[in-house]
Deep mutational scan, measured.
Amino acid sequence: MASDGVVVEIGKVTGSVGTTVEIPVYFRGVPSKGIANCDFVFRYDPNVLEIIGIDPGDIIVDPNPTKSFDTAIYPDRKIIVFLFAEDSGTGAYAITKDGVFAKIRATVKSSAPGYITFDEVGGFADNDLVEQKVSFIDGGVNVGNATPTKGATPTNTATPTK
């Protein structure tokens, strides 16, 4: 695992066909100046998982989280898009600690492993708008004895992609 920078880890949970599971997305290594904004994309298989919603985690402190935390689910493109932009203008609602960034709610549709993997990152910046190093650890849903650990090695991303 990367020793510096922010680590975004997609949790690994267990479920069975027809059940709804909650998959946490963790941030670790949050910089001392916090995270003022970030955007990134995960990939998944809508034939295996139906993403039914995404909720902000406990490290989102904006009293009205829909102003700073936004997501979009595109089953036709097989992606989930995340956007966080601190909304106070003063840094008061920045992410300042490690913990759960988001909770992905999904219904298991198939007995195949439900991988959720890193696809791309736009950027991560602290309260001074300084770009942060970030790496990703894939996860998803274990169905029966299947284990979604494909790509469990962190993917280092030093520069934003478009």
Rank of each mutant, 00 (worst) to 15 (best):
Lys97His: 10
Ala92Ile: 13
Ile51Arg: 11
Glu120Ser: 04
Gly5Ala: 06
Thr161Cys: 14
Pro160Cys: 09
Phe40Val: 02
Asp119Tyr: 14
Ile10Cys: 07
Phe27Thr: 11
Gly91Arg: 08
Ser3Gly: 15
Val141Asn: 13
Phe82Cys: 02
Asn142Tyr: 12
Thr157Phe: 10
Ser88Cys: 06
Gly99His: 05
Pro24Glu: 04
Ser111Cys: 14
Val134Leu: 03
Asp98Leu: 11
Ser135Gly: 07
Gly11Leu: 06
Asn64Gly: 02
Cys38Asn: 14
Ala106Glu: 02
Pro160Arg: 12
Asp128Thr: 07
Asp4Ser: 04
Ile23Arg: 05
Asn47Pro: 08
Ser111Leu: 10
Leu129Val: 06
Asp55His: 07
Arg43Tyr: 14
Val25Asn: 09
Ala92Trp: 15
Ile54Glu: 03
Ser16Trp: 01
Val108Asn: 08
Pro24His: 03
Ser3Phe: 13
Lys103Cys: 15
Gly114Leu: 07
Glu86Ile: 00
Ala158Cys: 13
Asp39Leu: 00
Gly34Glu: 04
Pro24Lys: 03
Ala36Met: 01
Ile52Val: 06
Val108Cys: 12
Gly99Tyr: 10
Phe136His: 12
Val134Phe: 01
Gly123Leu: 00
Ser135Phe: 06
Asp98Phe: 10
Thr157Met: 09
Thr107Asn: 06
Thr107Gln: 09
Asp126Val: 01
Glu120Lys: 01
Val21Leu: 14
Ser111Gln: 08
Pro75Arg: 02
Thr14Ile: 05
Phe27Asn: 15
Val134Thr: 13
Gly140Pro: 13
Val7Pro: 10
Gly5Cys: 06
Glu9Met: 02
Thr19Val: 04
Thr19Asp: 08
Leu83Gln: 00
Pro148His: 03
Glu9Asn: 07
Ala112Cys: 12
Pro31Val: 15
Thr71Lys: 06
Asn142Pro: 12
Val100Trp: 04
Leu49Gly: 15
Ser3Val: 03
Gly11Ala: 08
Gly53Pro: 11
Asn142Thr: 13
Gly91His: 03
Ala106Gly: 14
Val30Phe: 02
Pro63Val: 11
Arg77Gly: 06
Gly18Trp: 03
Ser68Met: 13
Glu86Arg: 00
Gly15Tyr: 09
Ile35Ser: 03
Val41Leu: 02
Val25Phe: 06
Pro65Gln: 09
Asp39Gln: 01
Gly144Asn: 13
Asn37Cys: 15
